[in-house]
Design a protein around this nucleic acid. Structure first.
Lengths: 162, 162
DNA sequence: GTGATTGCAAACTTTTTGCATCCGA
DNA sequence: TCGGATGCAAAAAGTTTGCAATCAC
């Protein structure tokens, strides 16, 4: 995604090209694979444009989501998080985002690509007539190092909230 | 899940058996397959116990989640939602919840069972050493009736928020 | 009796909105 | 010029917390 494509997309929707919008998109592009909160993006943005307000960040992120340039994620920590979108694979209307594995021990989020949902989506279409355009997959469990430290063997709730 | 099993589980954690806890669990059991918000559960609870407070609902729901009796869902509508858990299939530590397909046209949520993630989970274990204990799968798309009404053919953002 | 639980209200947190000003086209 | 965009502050909405009174055991 280069800047000209972005400007093009904005114009198609009669949206204006502003410094703030360029800044936020560039910040997202500089942090690929990260899952940033609005506050984090605001902090990064203020380094380059100290006047920028948090409301602008939220409004800009919504624009970028609508344009399909970034994805909004919910990793169950009370924040909405945003990350640069994956380039489309060309199938019309399909934006298959990558998946996330969240370690319940150390809260690390592992991202990975995988397209094993095709069978599931086909079956939905056949049985319900439901056409899938997008999906969000979250796997919860324990990463290797937490398992080596025995964090997956604790019972009860003592490690459910950090 | 009968009431005695519930009382048993509470005692194991040194939690007390209260009217409020019994009421909330029973309400959840009376609404299988529904995705209720805390406010909705509160409204139902007040019919039988008008004094019950919303804070008690939240605290009780957390207890039920911790006990593994209900699941907390996020269907991207700004609410946390709760539903009765599926009975475990016996595999230790595994609670495979069912999946949700959310129609972007009419916002209907379709629930379905399917266990097609085993391959994905095996591959995670082999490649990352990540042991999956649970997962949450959300599919977004358009249901049959919305497709018949052409709601999936609109471009842009005009149908992204309702 | 004693510590957990409840109800209420206030606090908190994230996100949205109203509005005057400013800016891009 | 002019409608959209911004910054600020206030509001909104869902959820959590402090505390005195109450309840389970």
């Amino acid at each position: 995604m280069n800047e000209n494509t972005f400007k093009q997309k904005l114009k198609e929707k009669n949206l204006k090209v502003t410094e703030q919008r360029l800044l936020v998109l560039n910040l997202m592009a500089e942090h690929p694979g990260e899952h940033l909160t609005a506050e984090e993006i605001h902090a990064l943005a203020k380094e380059k444009q100290p006047e920028i307000g948090l409301a602008t960040i939220y409004r800009t992120l919504q624009v970028l989501v609508d344009l399909g340039l970034i994805d909004k994620l919910n990793l169950d920590d009370g924040f909405s998080r945003y990350e640069l979108g994956q380039p489309s694979d060309g199938r019309e209307g399909l934006r298959h985002h990558h998946h996330h594995a969240i370690c319940k021990g150390c809260k690390t989020v592992f991202s990975f690509e995988e397209d094993l949902l095709d069978t599931l989506e086909q079956s939905l279409m056949e049985r319900l007539g439901f056409a899938v355009t997008d999906h969000e997959v979250k796997l919860f469990g324990y990463c290797r190092s937490c398992r080596e430290r025995g964090l997956d063997k604790l019972s009860g709730t003592e490690n459910m909230e950090v």
